[in-house]
Design a protein around this nucleic acid. Sequence first.
DNA 1: TAGCGGTGGTGTACGTTGTACACCATGAGT
DNA 2: ACTCATGGTGTACAACGTACACCACCGCTA
Lengths: 261, 261
Amino acid sequence: MVYNVHHRYSESTMTSSERRPDTGGLVWFDEPAPPRATEQLSRERIVAAAMELADDQVPGEITMRALAARLGVRSPMALYRYVGSKDGLVDLMTDQVYGQITVPRGDGWRAALQGLGRTSWEAVQRHLWFARLAFSRPPMGPNALHLYDAALAELEPLGLDAATRMGFVKTVLGHVLGSGLALLEEHTMRARVGLHSDSDLHAAVAPYLERIAAAGEHPHFIGWATDPQRLAPEPQSFEQVLEWLLDGLATLLPPEDRSPA
Amino acid sequence: MVYNVHHRYSESTMTSSERRPDTGGLVWFDEPAPPRATEQLSRERIVAAAMELADDQVPGEITMRALAARLGVRSPMALYRYVGSKDGLVDLMTDQVYGQITVPRGDGWRAALQGLGRTSWEAVQRHLWFARLAFSRPPMGPNALHLYDAALAELEPLGLDAATRMGFVKTVLGHVLGSGLALLEEHTMRARVGLHSDSDLHAAVAPYLERIAAAGEHPHFIGWATDPQRLAPEPQSFEQVLEWLLDGLATLLPPEDRSPA
DNA sequence: TAGCGGTGGTGTACGTTGTACACCATGAGT
DNA sequence: ACTCATGGTGTACAACGTACACCACCGCTA
């Protein structure tokens, strides 16, 4: 797949077989296939297995072959009866995670965006690969649309123009996905370097850092890298930054709309 | 490459030929090869060509074959005399961009981080692919280290602990890279949909949206999607959000250290 | 009950990717 | 003039997504 270069709306129209009508790359409009009793595969089973497979190893990359094997099917081509393309499958996985995010309704814009931030952060931590995928495709699945719709609905009373309204939501989600991507990278790096403890990780780069330290270069960076406190929890936690962003967004509102906390 | 699954510190040690000693995946320690007068390739030429190639098409994906062709060389393997692996080459490209970022010195922490944010944002806009690559590998090249060192040096007088110090820098760079990735995705989507104007883009998703609108679903989202104002510049610009983040970071400092503006 | 057609999994195959390996042409040093 | 490292070439392979032909089987109608 490689950053979904193959996924163009124009040409994915003709990728799937004509028995099951395709929907132009926008996979979410297929009605469920007329089920036969004996089928061992289904779109739901495939998506669920793909998500488990992505959860299992750290970068969250899946291959159609590995997925077919996990589903007990010998040919990867069997999956193409149900999903049209790997990119379409990834769209479905992504939207499934969007479905795990909720927006609190009726408690005002700040509570809505706070809840959006918190629940999406939890979803990202459950499925680290989601951060990467959500960044690289437009949020157009039914669950994503439902989510955006709920968030925009809560912003409606503020009377903001369209661009600003969506900007509020994107500010929050951008923070979530950015933090998630950084987290994913940290995990990936740990998986690359044999084992996962902090001391293992430190030992892997130690010779490189020593060489720099010996040359007397970058003293402030070396000072950080050799400080045992460097792994302490930072005050700039996800939640703290989210609050800063919400405070910033609040400054765009008339004073009477800025909720107290 | 595919999100550099192949790039493990342990095994990239043996990827390059033994004529040019490799440095364990950390490519930045090769001294320049003893030059011969007649060589048509060099590490510098390769990295420069790779950056131009990545700048040329939107997702910024390069292949060794395309790069070899651009350099007028028939075999992609010629490049492996100079770079060890594609992942190592990408490390070099990434660090080259880090070299375009500067940190103002001597004007205090806020000016330093502001300058860091501004210049890195400019670099990201020049080389959109940088946002993707910087997210997926640790910043360990000489230019990256120099940059982190300079930023940390400017934070030194604040007397913060190590984790918080680095957190200040990462907060800014996280915002830059997150915004850059969103920008890259927008450009990629435009490139997928035939041409690049806003109306083209809108026309591409219009039938899908109409179907949703006709079903009466997601009215608030549809309201945004059909609002001609939705493309207006948002108040949550990159610079504005950066200011919010700096304001937030300032709250972690004793009052006398928060600079006025 | 015989046959027929569509459904769903199989097997093979192709193009593209990164890159290992053997090969050889050339120019510098003895 | 012989040697030999240097640097570009060509071939080859594994893994990927996926197109295509194939066939086993089930439910239907005759």
